[in-house]
Simulated assay, not measured.
Amino acid sequence: MTTTPSSAAAPGPLDRWYESAGVRGGVRRIFHAEAEQGRVFFPARLVPHLDHPEVRGLGPERIRELTVRHLYQFLHSTTHLETRVVNGAAEPVANGRAGMDFPTALRMDAFKVYCDEGYHALYSLDLADQVAAVTGIAVPRLDYGGFVTALRSAGRALLPDDPLLAGQLQAVVFETLVTAVLNEVPQDPTVVSTVRELMRDHARDEGRHHRFFSDFLLQLWARLDRDRRIAAGRALPAMIRAALDWDVRPVLASLRLAGLDEERARAVVADCYGGDAGAARIQTVSRATVRLCAQVGAFDLPGVSDAFAAYGLHEPEDTDTHG
């Protein structure tokens, strides 16, 4: 539970928001091409298709364009996820429209998250526009909201009569997943400094959001009756996988723009993103979220363990639960 600074309880993750939030004291990150010679726009190890033989044969300039477009995909997907998923869940809580009696302190924290996420979307779009203007590599006119569509589809399929709860769970899932990009890119000196700085800014806020949404799930879960807990527990693994499965449509478009025909582009995507590709990554990235589900006692409910197993996710060992 988050608290006001005057509370006797432990400090909440957003108690110092007025002093520490990026939207309160951050600076606009400006891309200067002349200072970035020899650096990459995105680490190759975080772009699965760059290591494919078909892609390695395209030449350095095409590979550079692929890397820049991968940055665009990350930045534009961020704008969709932050404003449509996280703020779509934070607003009803903040305005008391969630159908539950949350404390005023938590509602104010939800408004703080709302402000943060709008700012993250703004500076993500801003950086993509700056990079496109300086490099001459256009941002493809694509729908970068595929993750949102997948998350909402999972919610509608499994919680068709409970859209507010579905939205809240989607935000919890997205905000508690460990994002390799935000953790790794700021530490990589081969990446252009503006990208590193922006992702470092983002990571600072998201660390606080992770703690807020972890606390929020505890409060939310305590307000659900048994039937809604069971429904929520069975829906969570589908949402986790929807948030982690790659949106390959922008990848396909980028590969075609790089010179691959449709057949070869689809083969690259199938090899790099299909089947069991990324299974180890999903286990690693989802660990904190799955542990949080266990902490609230979700795995003690009927059908939940089987639902997680069906998506290749399993209850962590040695987890204290509160059912």
Rank of each mutant, 00 (worst) to 15 (best):
D247S: 14
R241H: 09
G259W: 01
D276V: 09
R223Y: 04
A258Y: 02
L218S: 08
L252W: 02
T284S: 14
R287D: 02
L292W: 05
R211C: 06
R287L: 06
L260D: 03
D276P: 03
A243W: 03
L224T: 06
A253N: 08
Q219G: 15
V269M: 12
A238N: 08
R281N: 09
D225E: 08
V248N: 07
S214V: 01
T289R: 14
M239G: 10
S214L: 01
G278S: 12
L244H: 11
W246Q: 09
A277V: 06
V251D: 04
I230E: 03
R281S: 12
A243F: 02
R249G: 08
E263V: 14
A235W: 01
A203M: 09
R228W: 04
A232I: 06
R249S: 13
A222P: 00
D261G: 13
R204S: 03
L260S: 06
V285S: 14
L255V: 05
S286F: 06
A253K: 11
Y273D: 11
W246A: 15
R291P: 01
P237A: 11
D225G: 14
H209M: 02
A258P: 00
D201M: 03
L257D: 11
D215W: 04
D225M: 07
A238E: 03
R228C: 05
Q283K: 15
V290H: 09
D201C: 00
V248T: 15
Q219I: 01
W221P: 03
W246S: 14
T284M: 10
A242M: 07
D201R: 04
D227N: 13
Q219K: 08
D215F: 00
L260N: 04
R287T: 07
R234D: 02
A288G: 04
S286E: 01
F216V: 07
H210M: 05
A288C: 04
R204Y: 01
R264G: 03
Q283Y: 03
L217S: 12
A238K: 09
D215R: 14
D215T: 00
R287H: 15
L255D: 02
A280L: 13
